[in-house]
């Protein structure tokens, strides 16, 4: 059985799992966005910085999908579909540009997993994934929101990387481990070799 070597082709179930992650996180962002608005008002004129502070939340989907399905391109597709859910179903004000954001975030988050050839899922890889995702998308956001030339550019970068590492990396890992504990992932993960199964 091809249990341990990742196969490139995504099954319909893989796609549905990715969409479910996109939908649930899309919905949860929407629920927690109230908290975000409160935070931006609290921060007054620097409210704009909360975007950097919370970027990690938007990075969660890719590492979680990767750690569940363990196949190439899953992270990129997961971020793209999550963006599609927000644009098409939730009517996000960022509009279709979010698709580009998702693509870049996905690529960033996936690079560290790809470097391990989708074999290692330890804390270090998650941490690197969060840093990479947050770092890569920083350049795109800087263009999008005209950050270049602002005095607080280094502060923004620091906050964004920190958030990426903590929320988009370590939190993602915590969620995956908790999911493993519930047993929902049993049929989604590559199977144990079939000939090892014994009937009671």
């Amino acid at each position: 059985m091809a249990a341990h070597t990742p196969t490139a082709r995504l099954t319909l179930r893989d796609i549905v799992v990715i969409v479910v992650l996109g939908v649930v996180f899309g919905f949860l962002y929407w629920v927690f966005v109230q908290a975000w608005t409160a935070l931006s008002i609290l921060m007054g004129p620097l409210g704009d910085l909360t975007g950097n502070l919370l970027i990690g939340c938007w990075l969660l989907v890719a590492p979680i999908a990767l750690a569940i399905l363990r196949k190439p391109f899953v992270g990129v597709i997961a971020e793209l579909l999550a963006a599609a859910v927000e644009v098409v179903f939730l009517g996000s004000p960022a509009g279709p540009l979010l698709l580009i954001t998702g693509l870049i975030q996905g690529i960033g988050s996936e690079i560290p997993f790809a470097l391990t050839r989708y074999r290692r899922y330890g804390a270090a890889v998650f941490l690197a994934s969060g840093l990479c995702g947050a770092g890569l998308v920083f350049f795109w956001s800087a263009v999008r929101f005209g950050w270049l030339g602002q005095d607080i550019l280094p502060l923004r970068l620091t906050l964004q990387l920190l958030s990426g590492a903590l929320l988009g990396g370590l939190l993602a890992r915590g969620i995956v481990r908790a999911l493993e504990g519930t047993g929902v992932l049993a049929n989604l993960r590559p199977a144990v070799a079939a000939d090892e199964l014994v009937r009671r």
Binding site: V192, V198, R199
Partner: peptide
């Protein structure tokens, strides 16, 4: 026809 599940059920 026999189905064997992980965990020994079937």
């Amino acid at each position: 026809l026999e189905i064997v599940l992980p965990g020994g059920g079937g």
